[in-house]
Design a protein around this nucleic acid. Structure first.
Lengths: 126, 126
DNA sequence: GACGGTGTACTAAGTGGTTAATACACTGTT
DNA sequence: AACAGTGTATTAACCACTTAGTACACCGTC
């Protein structure tokens, strides 16, 4: 567990984002336990309340499930997990399409640019 | 002149963005005059200092040029103007590619999604 | 039952950055 | 010369939001 924080976005948002990425990549699966608030805070050197805030929002989104005095677990609802991935993708697509359309970039040009950029950069591993 | 402000981003940023879009679309061309700080502020119902801040940053980026007691004008430097468009595009492309790669979406899938989304939505007019 | 672990709630403090207020210098016009 | 319009600079106020502090309730285990 290690997150590269930027100091642009709020920490708790970045924590949530981190977990969503893990889920979207399949590294975190249904039923997996995640660290306690205090443990996560300790590992990431953040305030426990910040961890709590992140967990609370994830709980409200249905990503994780917490039972009394039990470590929080990733939800068993497969649809929700698939949803995380799809939302991340949809968000990226929508934003991109909105951007290029707003300045009248033809579809063909946009596609070509993506293809080039995609192939240029190395793959992610973690 | 009319901007649909969101209350997420700072106003002065949105003002800059608006001018960049106008430039990228070719609606604002080299040498065109833009409203005075106070006039813009009046039109948009924002504080003159907010307009000033936006103009100042655009000045620093070389987008506009201001001479004493003359209305600010869009730069004559064509390269800068082309740069605006290219930066907007590059930004969109990079962000998209980073996003999809970070969750291991294959290029083909990404392309297909873009194509579909692009065709679905109506074109922009303004 | 004491202790260390868990999750949770409430409140206070801090903080960074945006926006507003105000004033100054300059120029052209009347 | 007065005035109304420019751009500019400095400082103050504001404000939303994040983060931190603290305390409480609960459960297992030793």
């Amino acid at each position: 567990m290690n997150i590269q924080f930027n100091n642009r976005d709020p920490v708790y948002i970045q924590v949530i984002q981190h977990f969503k990425l893990q889920i979207a990549k399949g590294f975190l699966e249904s039923g997996d336990v995640i660290p306690s608030r205090r443990e996560l805070a300790s590992q990431l050197k953040i305030n426990p309340n910040t961890a709590q805030r992140a967990y609370k929002e994830m709980e409200e989104e249905g990503l994780i499930k917490t039972e009394k005095n039990q470590p929080s677990k990733v939800t068993h609802d497969q649809d929700v997990l698939r949803g995380v991935r799809n939302e991340l993708i949809d968000e990226a697509v929508s934003q991109f399409v909105d951007s290029v359309k707003s300045i009248n970039v033809p579809l063909e040009d946009a596609m070509k640019l993506i293809e080039t950029h995609y192939k240029e950069k190395g793959d992610y591993n973690d």
